[in-house]
Design a protein around this nucleic acid. Sequence first.
DNA 1: TTCATTGCAAAAGTTTTGCACGTGC
DNA 2: GCACGTGCAAAACTTTTGCAATGAA
Lengths: 142, 142
Amino acid sequence: MEIKDTVALLKSKGYRITPQRVAIIRILRDHEGHPGVEEVFRSVIQVHPNISMATVYNVMEVLEKEGIIKAIANSKKSRRYDSEVKPHGHFICNSCGRVFDIPMKYYEACLKVFPSEMTDFEVNSFELTIKGICPDCKKKLL
Amino acid sequence: MEIKDTVALLKSKGYRITPQRVAIIRILRDHEGHPGVEEVFRSVIQVHPNISMATVYNVMEVLEKEGIIKAIANSKKSRRYDSEVKPHGHFICNSCGRVFDIPMKYYEACLKVFPSEMTDFEVNSFELTIKGICPDCKKKLL
DNA sequence: TTCATTGCAAAAGTTTTGCACGTGC
DNA sequence: GCACGTGCAAAACTTTTGCAATGAA
């Protein structure tokens, strides 16, 4: 999504467009991978030297609530986010903790696993999480 | 798995069978749902009043490493475990944080989503995580 | 006996909160 | 100007670590 579209979306929801929010939105758009709060903070502090972690947490929460980013299910380490909100899977390396995207060519097949008897559950997001060892770590472990 | 089988497995891997480990294994077997470390601690402290969190963390880590329990991918709140290690999905309520099991009738269909070009990744676990609002919270939110 | 494991306490790391001040609208 | 958002500092939590004492094999 274009930055100005994201900004427009936030504005339409009644959020104020602060330079800190815009900066974080820009950083997330340019960032490759799956940054954590700490990583976003380290980037945004170069533009806004006085910004605090509390603000980063606040902005990330707003962006997640509005569906602009997605929190990644991740049992180890701390929270990470994905600015790709289209359904796809994640591979989490048990050794280095890195998160890899899995292209969900067969997403439709996966959708079928949601049982019909659970219709009372309101589905917001749908994520496939695979854990294991990534190729790099496999080499190192040998 | 029977407690004595779990104990035998640990013993065969060279772990010592301490009363604390046995107590936690027993608690996990009897516990319904998806306890966190804190919850396990509150149960085990009734049998071993001097046990410390560090020991609970230690035991849970051993059990997870040996495939006796599984850590649940969970971006919010703290780590939770599942003593059901057979592949199945989880529904995580964004409102109350509870974890519901999803019977994976269509697990085979889901397996297909792992792309053939990612053969260099070693898959340890495969989990479907769906987030949304559970029926109870939906009622409360109305 | 021996060495893995425990309990404790402290440290490290993550996330939340309260509040005064600043700023977008 | 008003109310929301920010920055700061402290608090609340979660998880890890170092080490002396303990106890399973």
